[in-house]
């Protein structure tokens, strides 16, 4: 017994070092797996509070651009509205059930945005108190941003599409071939689409948008345009480089998307 205590006292520095080092490595490993990084998160009142306080000042420098984006979005929406009233107003039949849309939108402000690491997260200023929950989609008027990963009372952490753990279902606009959106960690303006089969008509400049089957994003949220593509060696799948519509280095305001049917479809799926 005496020897054990002597041993502990003699090596207390090394033991403390090994213990804390191991702890950090465990945190690191957890952060590399999707949906498991629960301990270390900036979505708490302390860090969230500091970020939102600083962001209040920072926001003023970008006001001009955010206003321009809003005007752009309004223009697109107005065009859609005009097209709708001209062509379809007579033929659209609305009854009370169709008011219950599957998707609900919540607006939020990004208070911390990171894009220089290999696994990036954003922090937004809406949380449980605004009925935000895990697995809500996050988009801007220009395209997709990521998926809500964790929430606290007033803040939510978003897994950016610039995260090596993120994998989102996308498809070609022209045809119904679908693939997975991933990121190789290099350029914050370019992401990769994998698993699009060789048969698909892929061309430079084609648009990629979300596929409705993921239960997180509605169908047709724009992602980007194809910049480069090649066949994977010995495989029947394309590897496609996509230039994002969104400038991920400057995300101001975002929409969080709630899919009201998510639970129902998930339950149905798990009954198999």
């Amino acid at each position: 017994m005496q020897q054990i205590i002597n041993f502990l006292i003699k090596y207390k520095n090394t033991l403390l070092f090994l213990f804390l080092f191991l702890l950090s490595v465990i945190f690191t490993i957890q952060s590399h797996s999707y949906h498991k990084s629960k301990f270390i998160s900036s979505a708490n009142f302390f860090t969230g509070g500091i970020y939102s306080w600083v962001n209040d000042v920072d926001m003023y420098f970008n006001l001009r651009e955010y206003n321009e984006r809003l005007v752009d979005e309004n223009k697109t929406l107005r065009e859609n509205l005009a097209a709708l009233t001209e062509v379809e107003l007579d033929s659209v039949f609305t009854d009370t059930t169709s008011y219950n849309d599957p998707y609900q939108f919540i607006t939020a402000k990004v208070i911390a945005n990171r894009y220089s690491k290999r696994d990036n997260f954003l922090l937004v200023n809406k949380g449980k108190a605004d009925s935000v929950a895990t697995d809500y989609g996050v988009i801007t008027s220009r395209g997709i941003v990521g998926i809500v990963d964790e929430t606290s009372q007033n803040y939510a952490r978003v897994i950016s599409i610039l995260n090596t753990n993120s994998a989102i279902n996308v498809k070609l606009k022209k045809s119904d071939h679908f693939g997975t959106l991933t990121w190789n960690g290099k350029d914050p303006n370019r992401v990769q689409v994998e698993e699009i089969p060789r048969l698909a008509p892929v061309k430079k400049g084609d648009t990629i948008h979300t596929d409705g089957r993921s239960l997180i994003f509605p169908k047709g949220i724009p992602v980007g345009i194809i910049e480069d593509f090649h066949l994977k060696s010995n495989q029947n799948y394309y590897e496609i480089d996509v230039r994002l519509f969104n400038d991920m280095t400057n995300v101001g305001y975002v929409y969080l998307i709630k899919n009201n049917n998510q639970e129902e479809i998930k339950n149905l799926d798990s009954n198999e």
């Binding site: 702890l23 950090s24 998160s41």
Partner: peptide, 22 residues
């Protein structure tokens, strides 16, 4: 760890800091 919590990086800053402290 403080830096890690702010930057959502798991434990990488803590691990590196502990190593150089040792």
């Amino acid at each position: 760890l403080t830096i890690d919590i702010f930057e959502d990086t798991g434990g990488i800053h803590a691990a590196a800091s502990v190593l150089i402290a040792y």
